[in-house]
Design a protein around this nucleic acid. Structure first.
Lengths: 151, 151
DNA sequence: TTTATATATTTGTGTATACAAATGTTGTCT
DNA sequence: AGACAACATTTGTATACACAAATATATAAA
């Protein structure tokens, strides 16, 4: 089920630019599904996991909502409500910033850090599994081509 | 804003497998955003456009919901409610199948066909714009690598 | 014919996304 | 100080997605 024509259940050929767009879409779906399935089994979503990683990267320095929002890969999702869910799960805490009471300071809790250290190796394993068919050179090339597409 | 480190606003290096996954995600976002923005300006969504194309491909032969569902790139979305919206817009019509009254026969209307023929050239233009930075060989290579990732 | 099973679609519901408007806070200009 | 714009976050709302349950029809078995 890996070839594009099998996914689209069509025998028609199409211009290469359309093929690239559809291939990108399908491959992203394929990868995202695996990740979301995995995260779900750990009561997380991909976006939540990424926010936790951003907060860990702060090394204790609190981050406010707008910085979290702009660092998120999932640009669309609403950082505020996402943080609320992580608070309920006990993985982050929030305080109003003393110097600027408009801002909110978000920090990862030790439970959040524990969750990350527990989950991280499995994430890496999944990443390795996903790209196992490609050689080092192919991966470098793929990165280069994907980046070039965004220029 | 095309380099991954700029998007993630981080200077950290990361293992290549993580980079590939994030790059895939970001490039797909980049491309999808452009398409959805375009479709929105024509009162369509990407999924709706794809369904219309599937129906045109039927060349008059009605398609039932489950076939539409399995041919859709957007596997997650609900073909039934999506078709309802296209009916409201007048682009498709539905009938109960005479031979098997469980099934629903969906066909594209002439308004739907008109919409497609109007929109199609702009879609192609957008596709060409998106991939303009890559040579023919690079596109072929990218397709190959994306497909290999799904194996 | 009744019962059971498979198929095709519809509906319901909780969650997520997209975007606009509202709220509260700070800084600036007069 | 008062008015006003800029900023950070929250809330509202319409739409979309994901998944389970319900409905309706057809097929097969007893």
């Amino acid at each position: 089920m890996s070839k594009l024509s099998e996914i689209l259940k069509t025998s028609k050929s199409m211009p290469i630019e359309k093929e690239v767009v559809l291939n990108l879409f399908c491959t992203n779906n394929f990868v995202s599904e695996k990740f979301e399935l995995f995260f779900k089994s750990h009561d997380l979503t991909g976006a939540q996991y990424n926010v936790l990683r951003i907060l860990r990267g702060q090394k204790g320095v609190p981050a406010n909502l707008s910085t979290i929002q702009e660092r998120m890969v999932h640009k669309n999702s609403n950082a505020g409500r996402l943080i609320d869910k992580l608070i309920v799960k006990g993985f982050v805490k929030r305080n109003i910033c003393e110097n600027n009471r408009r801002k909110i300071e978000v920090t990862i809790t030790s439970e959040g850090l524990d969750k990350l250290t527990f989950v991280d190796p499995y994430v890496q394993q999944l990443e390795e599994e996903l790209i196992h068919g490609l050689t080092e050179e192919e991966l470098i090339l793929l990165n280069k081509l994907l980046e070039k597409l965004r220029e």
